[in-house]
């Protein structure tokens, strides 16, 4: 039994024309695994992530996180579940402008009303790990995009979640910052053993994963595992993407 179990998951959006966004997805992620989800725009990868992150509800099928089914919980219970068990990293950081970086990072803990000592301890540990100690008292608009994303990762992991979910974390970053952010996520996965699910367009970001799952038109298409060499894995991903339909250039053009 994996840490995250997705069984026969389907999602249909009803409208004037109903759209089948996901069709019969089965996926299992083991404890401590670092899995990337890739696919073209509209392939359904963000829908899948939303479902796992409990923001959206499946039309049929089941999701189990740590043997719990979050979609059977009540709203307030669900919020608490997200707060305690999950960590989120977003493309646009989602940091609050009114707070300092430190306050943003401890936010999940303050909502839990943890003691000040515990918060300070964890803040120090996570800030050192991510190399953002010197910007802790700055405002979000005073630091670079890469630093902001590292702060967001710090916020997502300060409460030691069982599952870290990242939605295009490098989508708004330059290549140097992207690399840096991905190295941080890899580090957290290795040192803390945090199970991580990453949705991305970016082959470079995906090359940090243990395994990359490809989705095409709402269905699982293929998956490839990383060997010893990341460079080789990167090439495999590019090949896979071009095989999927578009060409490498078109698919990796998300960088700003």
């Amino acid at each position: 039994m994996g840490m995250l179990e997705i069984q026969k998951l389907s999602k249909i959006y009803n409208g004037k024309v109903s759209t089948r966004a996901l069709n019969n997805i089965d996926l299992s992620i083991e404890q401590g695994e670092f899995v990337g989800i890739m696919g073209a725009s509209g392939s359904g990868k963000t829908t899948l992530l939303n479902m796992v992150s409990t923001i959206d509800t499946p039309s049929s099928g089941k999701i189990l996180i740590n043997n719990q089914n979050p979609h059977q919980m009540k709203k307030n219970q669900l919020a608490q579940f997200r707060r305690r068990q999950l960590g989120f990293v977003f493309q646009d950081f989602n940091l609050l402008d009114t707070l300092t970086i430190a306050e943003n990072i401890v936010l999940p803990l303050t909502l839990e009303k943890k003691s000040l000592r515990e918060m300070d301890q964890k803040l120090k540990a996570v800030a050192e790990k991510l190399g953002i100690v010197e910007i802790l008292n700055k405002r979000t608009y005073e630091v670079s995009g890469g630093q902001r994303q590292r702060a967001a990762i710090a916020r997502a992991t300060i409460h030691s979640p069982v599952l870290l979910l990242a939605d295009e974390p490098t989508g708004a970053l330059d290549s140097k910052s992207s690399r840096n952010v991905m190295e941080m996520m890899e580090k957290i996965n290795q040192t803390d053993g945090t199970t991580t699910m990453l949705v991305t367009h970016d082959p470079l970001a995906a090359s940090y994963c243990h395994r990359v799952v490809f989705i095409k038109d709402g269905e699982l298409y293929n998956e490839i595992h990383r060997g010893q060499n990341r460079q080789e894995f990167f090439q495999e991903i590019i090949d896979m993407l071009s095989f999927l339909g578009g060409n490498a250039h078109e698919l990796s053009a998300v960088r700003v």
Partner: peptide, 10 residues
């Protein structure tokens, strides 16, 4: 944004 990271309705 806050809701995604677990701010409850209450």
């Amino acid at each position: 944004g806050l809701s995604k990271i677990g701010l409850s309705l209450k």
